[in-house]
Design a protein around this nucleic acid. Sequence first.
DNA 1: TCAACATAGTTTAAATATTGACATAAGTGA
DNA 2: TCACTTATGTCAATATTTAAACTATGTTGA
Lengths: 405, 405
Amino acid sequence: MQDSLRTGDQKGSKTAILQMLRLHGTMSRIELMRRTELSRATISLAISELIELKLVRETEVRQSTGGRPATSLELVPDSHIILGADLNDQMWILGAFDLLGNTVGKLQIPYSRPVPEAAVQALTEALPQFIQHLDKSILPVIGLGVPGLVDTYRGLIRSSAVLGWQNVELGEMVERNLGRSTVVLNRSRARGLSECRYGAGKEYDHMIYIGVDTGIGAGIYVNRELIHGAIGGAGEIGHTTVDADGPLCLCGNHGCLQMLAAAPAIEQDTRRLLRQGEPSTLLGQPDRDIQLLKFPEIGAAADQGDPLALRVVEQAATYLGIVMANLVNLLNPQAIILGGPVPKACNSFVQTAVKVMRQRSMNLLSAATAIRIGTFDDIGGSLGAANFALDRHLSFSHLLPAQGK
Amino acid sequence: MQDSLRTGDQKGSKTAILQMLRLHGTMSRIELMRRTELSRATISLAISELIELKLVRETEVRQSTGGRPATSLELVPDSHIILGADLNDQMWILGAFDLLGNTVGKLQIPYSRPVPEAAVQALTEALPQFIQHLDKSILPVIGLGVPGLVDTYRGLIRSSAVLGWQNVELGEMVERNLGRSTVVLNRSRARGLSECRYGAGKEYDHMIYIGVDTGIGAGIYVNRELIHGAIGGAGEIGHTTVDADGPLCLCGNHGCLQMLAAAPAIEQDTRRLLRQGEPSTLLGQPDRDIQLLKFPEIGAAADQGDPLALRVVEQAATYLGIVMANLVNLLNPQAIILGGPVPKACNSFVQTAVKVMRQRSMNLLSAATAIRIGTFDDIGGSLGAANFALDRHLSFSHLLPAQGK
DNA sequence: TCAACATAGTTTAAATATTGACATAAGTGA
DNA sequence: TCACTTATGTCAATATTTAAACTATGTTGA
């Protein structure tokens, strides 16, 4: 788990090419030449061998640009399988994926008690049967996306409010039980990585993912790779202070973003206003239990113009928009991907957040920033975690014929 | 100017070794082996040749750790010279540096009129004489650190409030006049790069530089390299919104950090309170012209316990501290370097900013973040710009004997 | 004091990787 | 059709990298 910090060795043109195709998708030989800074001859030779090895394949012949048309190349999707899992407080979502990010297997694994041992045991018991179905070569790594602050370099969950765990050496526990190299990262970062490589962000080299669910998490991607920071904690956007006098957060500070803009905040504000007697279509039948009102319904009401819901949603989205503006000024991303159920279920939330972001960020930077809604649902975390594990561990050395150790 | 995005080609062990020594400083052969992921043999051979070429030298023999002691290696400082310049609204500060970051020449070049042509002309006229003194090999690049929003990939100043310039193709202008490859970047990012490589940040791989002067700018460094973002605008921290109802900024938004925490804000607040008749040691003689009161004096008064000055300084530092806390949560840096005259001249400013930062960021992340005061004075921008030019352009291919093109 | 061990660095032939230069392929437009 | 453009293939020549055996220089403890 505690490899060096570098992602993917650059040794050998074949490795470099595979890495490039994995991170950036389809490319022609000429494009590979430019991006890898290798010669045409080297690329040509290496590609022949990789096609021979059935790791790469030609797809379409493109439009001519005035000469011989280029041929697109991509990884052969069904040559190898990678595994990833996304953890929440009730279950794992385990996924198996090919090298193009397609899901080839998915399984929900509930665990009995809210303790690390139970979670690890459930995963350990379920995995053998899960991978039995997959007759292809499964790479000997697994990535785990978990909520909370994770020291990725040590596979250590430092602290997770969602799980109620502290200092859990999850990486080592799983590695011992599963016998495969294990990489642990924050699940928002994992979900963002799947968007970055295969989803809404796949056109962008520099992007930020923001997941809005019961909390708010983020991932920052530079050149399609995740930024970690000192201990793997980069991206804790949910604890950005947006209102110094705001409500107390579990982290000990006041006015953290996720106390003001995540789904629970929207639900609470809505209930409070309803109790104060404000009119709203959300009341419906008179015996309606306000306590059962959940976000999807509120978001839908806002999109349909219900004034109360709209007001609450816009308030929350404004906070997010301010943080997004700061992100734009600070990191100048090509795109921000808004993921998670809240942006997906509520268009007015997104509209407001983006409007505020555009207002409050520098025009020149804002103009260079695209906004997209996340592509993946609950499988995104597993896909991203699996990819991250591959980033960290193999760099395809396992796929190529052995030459020396 | 519009090379590929990659920094430094990885071709050849010698290039990789030189790059490693340049970015990370002194290292032994074994450490180089680990960080470059090359074999001992390769390192050993390459180092021999590099010593032969007088590009690398052995320095001390270290303490033994239970076996043969390692020998430290570093770049030979006086083998080559790089050039950089830092622009403000009145002059260039031109510098020449060796490969260890030592200043071997410095010159202030005022320019007559506040237009790009005059600035470029002044630089063009002064340079030949400046480099005449330096009898060593001067690498054919120059880096320019300028205030404002810079599209680094195009050498274009998009917009600079300090200079009053818009869409100036400075890179091309200078390149044409000087006949050397020119790289333009924001000067705060340049100043931070000098701290990152040679100054207060040289122990850290992941750091953030914040310069507090008449404005506030920043640079973000991951693995000792500058993060650019989509158009080179990453680091515009001065326009972070910290008080949505705050004063109007030149950028068009309200409550930007640099309107509340930079030197002019401190000066204005102090004057306002003095005019309101608040007691302070700053008044001194009764005929004192309040309008002439400048930051260094206010900072000194705050450090000596003057209540008015302290109050103003602490207010400004609190805003900065909030932004620093957000930076810690968002990027999890190993260190934040506070540069520029304000932190340097006023200890209480720093104390307060750090205190607020520690309060408002996640404990686990804050505990991993060191705070340092910048090392360099006005030469830092030139040094950083020169380094950045080397990062972008040569990667030492010019230093090694030619083999092919 | 000396053997046993630990860490750092060198040398060699042999294996691998990369390239320049030239050849070929497949399109466009007059 | 020819002249031109862009993309790709081939191969001998060259450059780089490595495994493995060896040398060098320290510590530790009987």
